[in-house]
Write a protein that binds this DNA or RNA. Structure first.
Lengths: 154, 154
DNA sequence: TTTCTTGCTCCCACAAATTGGGAATAGTCA
DNA sequence: TGACTATTCCCAATTTGTGGGAGCAAGAAA
């Protein structure tokens, strides 16, 4: 099921964040893998099976040869090493690790923007998120048109 | 069946909006997908199959490779992440998510303009809608002529 | 003009989601 | 080793969401 919707929630004073129930039920898993986001300073949460399928090529690869690839090693260092799996507590909250919170600029007791990105979730400091949107002011319509064209071309 | 007509309805104090029965019956579905509108700050409601066909290319697909496209990620963030599917309740109401209401400037207990847009529905803050119309005062006839010419050209 | 039907609004009750706090466990430092 | 701090887990209270129903209004038919 697709993860969609935009939500604003607050990190509590223990570093816990409530994941909205709509996202939780779309996840159909009591775990997520948290890591640095691919764009800018945010936190990404992946369903475990999607994470494995999508990123594990960098470390394993069927033949195990990726260990001789400098790019794969760098990707691992910059991205995979920051990832860890998190469990939901009985109220649907996850404990965001200190290191990722620092990376994303998310303090205790602060608000965050939670984005359903289809296959995964992004968690943003609201100000940083707005900066990202403002930095790139192509209209939604133009962006979609370009993408659709590109897709047809491929 | 085409979605047509212009209606004024009121959002109730729980954020629910009655969709006029003419639009509901033209939809022939007990669900819609709500998202940010493509022009300006409004809410768009799409029949689910139309939405999937038209927009979800950026997030669906089992290969997950779109996750490595920065453009696809940006499109997802700006447009798809705001989308959620909504069910009609037994009285023909849908619950407009807080984030979309904020985006469109629609408060609880306020009036909205509902537009049948052929394949989909737009929901506007009436003032913003009037501003849009006023800002772009090309005649309907000229608009139609330009569109028709464009179509032939392609 | 009256009656009937359908759509709409408002209100209430139940269910689920969310929040906050407290107890227990694990970890750290002196 | 003991005390202190941090972390995890769980429970209870509150808030919010959801669905249903009654009543009103508007329009159609007789």
């Amino acid at each position: 099921m697709l993860l969609t919707g935009e939500y604003i929630n607050k990190v509590d004073d223990k570093g816990r964040l409530m994941i909205p129930s709509k996202l939780r039920s779309a996840l159909s898993s009591s775990q997520v893998v948290a890591s640095k986001g691919l764009d800018g300073s945010c936190i990404a949460l992946f369903p475990p099976d999607f994470f494995d399928k999508t990123f594990s090529f960098a470390i394993s690869g069927d033949d195990g040869m990726q260990i001789f690839s400098p790019e794969a090693r760098m990707f691992t260092r910059r991205f995979l090493s920051s990832s860890q799996s998190l469990d939901f507590d009985s109220s649907g909250r996850v404990n965001l690790p200190q290191s990722l919170r620092t990376y994303a600029g998310i303090d205790l007791r602060s608000e965050v923007t939670i984005l359903g990105m289809g296959k995964y979730i992004e968690i943003w400091n609201p100000e940083k998120y707005n900066e990202l949107l403002a930095a790139d002011d192509v209209s939604i319509s133009d962006l979609g048109e370009a993408l659709a064209k590109n897709k047809r071309g491929v």
